[in-house]
């Protein structure tokens, strides 16, 4: 069974407009902070990202 285009897309690819731009930036920022910030809290980061995406799409 072939996957539908939406299934092939990553979560950020399924987003549109500012949410998509923010998700792209957040992915880069996540990697940057994870590799450079000793106190980096991935859960808090994800929570913040989800919060922003929810508001941007709401």
């Amino acid at each position: 069974m072939n996957a539908t285009p939406s299934e092939k897309q990553s979560p950020s690819e399924r987003l549109i407009g500012p949410a998509k731009d923010f998700a792209s930036y957040a992915e880069l920022e996540y990697e940057r902070r994870r590799s450079s910030d000793e106190d980096f809290d991935p859960d808090r980061f994800r929570e913040a990202v989800d919060l922003v995406l929810g508001k941007l799409q709401g």
């Binding site: 923010f22 930036y25 957040a26 920022e29 808090r44 990202v49 919060l51």
Partner: peptide
């Protein structure tokens, strides 16, 4: 406090995203 931290982080991320965009 977690809500504050998350929202401040969210604002910080958004500012970074705005700068980036």
């Amino acid at each position: 406090r977690r809500r504050v931290e998350v929202r401040e982080l969210a604002a910080d991320l958004l500012k970074g995203a705005i700068h980036y965009i």
